[in-house]
Computed example of a mutant assay.
Amino acid sequence: MYFTDRGIEELADRRGEETLTFEGLADAMRAFVDVHPEFEVAVERLATWLARPDDDPDL
């Protein structure tokens, strides 16, 4: 298990029953980058990866 899996597991445990749109996710990611601009590149890469799943042969 990667260290980041702990946060992912907490997210699934706490919010896993909720419904979220991609627009809602995009808003949350923008808000996160506003507070933590040092993570802008990582968030941008994640957003691009989520937007283009067909480009990844492992999916």
Rank of each mutant, 00 (worst) to 15 (best):
Glu44Tyr: 12
Met29Asn: 12
Ala28Lys: 06
Asp58Met: 03
Thr21Met: 00
Leu46Ala: 12
Pro53Met: 04
Asp5Cys: 07
Leu59Thr: 14
Glu44Arg: 15
Pro37Met: 04
Asp54Val: 08
Gly16Lys: 05
Glu18Lys: 01
Leu59Glu: 06
Met29Leu: 15
Arg6Met: 11
Pro37Gln: 01
Asp27His: 11
Arg14Gly: 02
Tyr2Leu: 09
Leu20Val: 10
Trp49Glu: 11
Phe39Cys: 11
Asp58Leu: 01
Val33Thr: 03
Arg14Tyr: 03
Val41His: 08
Glu23Leu: 12
Glu18Asn: 08
Ala42His: 13
Glu17Gln: 10
Val43Arg: 02
Ala12Ile: 14
Leu20Lys: 13
Leu11Ser: 06
Trp49Lys: 13
His36Trp: 00
Glu9Val: 14
Leu50Tyr: 04
Thr19Glu: 13
His36Phe: 03
Thr21Pro: 05
Arg14Thr: 02
Phe22Gln: 15
Leu50Pro: 05
Ala31Ser: 15
Gly16Ser: 05
Tyr2Asp: 04
Arg30Leu: 13
Tyr2Ile: 02
Leu50Asp: 01
Asp27Trp: 06
Leu59Val: 14
Leu50Phe: 09
Gly7Thr: 03
Phe32Asp: 10
Phe3His: 00
Asp54Met: 10
Leu59Met: 11
Asp58Phe: 07
Leu46Met: 12
Gly16His: 08
Ala31Thr: 12
Phe3Met: 02
Asp56Lys: 02
Asp27Met: 02
Ala47Pro: 08
Leu11Asn: 02
Glu40Trp: 07
Asp27Glu: 13
Glu44Cys: 09
Leu11Gly: 02
Arg15Ile: 04
Val33Ile: 00
Arg45Pro: 03
Phe32Ser: 10
Glu44Ala: 15
Phe3Lys: 06
Trp49Ile: 08
Thr21Gly: 00
Arg14Leu: 06
Ala31Lys: 10
Glu38Gln: 03
Glu44Gly: 15
Phe22Ala: 11
Arg45Val: 06
Met29Gly: 07
Gly16Cys: 05
Leu46Lys: 10
Glu44Ile: 07
Glu38Leu: 07
Tyr2Pro: 04
Pro53Thr: 01
Thr21Leu: 00
Val33Met: 01
Leu20Pro: 08
Val35Glu: 14
Gly16Leu: 03
Thr4Gly: 00
Ala28Leu: 08
Tyr2Arg: 08
Met29Gln: 14
Val43Asp: 04
Trp49Ser: 10
Gly16Phe: 01
Phe22Arg: 15
Phe32Val: 06
Ala12Trp: 12
Arg14Ser: 02
Asp56Glu: 00
Arg6Tyr: 14
Glu38Tyr: 02
Glu38Met: 01
Pro37Lys: 05
Met29Asp: 12
Asp13Trp: 07
Asp27Leu: 05
Val43Leu: 07
Glu44Lys: 13
Leu11Arg: 02
Phe39Leu: 10
Asp27Ala: 09
Glu38Lys: 08
Pro37Thr: 05
Pro57Asp: 00
Ile8Glu: 09
Phe3Ala: 07
Ala12Arg: 15
Pro53Leu: 06
Glu10Phe: 09
Thr48Lys: 13
Ala47Cys: 12
Ala47Lys: 11
Asp34Met: 04
Ala47Asp: 13
Val35Gly: 11
His36Arg: 00
Leu46Ser: 07
Glu10Cys: 13
Arg6Val: 13
Ala42Lys: 10
Phe39Met: 10
Glu44Ser: 15
Val43Lys: 03
Leu11Val: 03
Leu46Asp: 08
Ala28Gln: 06
Met1Gly: 07
Leu59Lys: 12
Phe3Ser: 01
Gly16Met: 03
Arg15Gly: 05
Arg30Ala: 15
Arg45Tyr: 08
Val35Phe: 09
Asp5Arg: 11
Ala26Glu: 04
Ala28Asn: 06
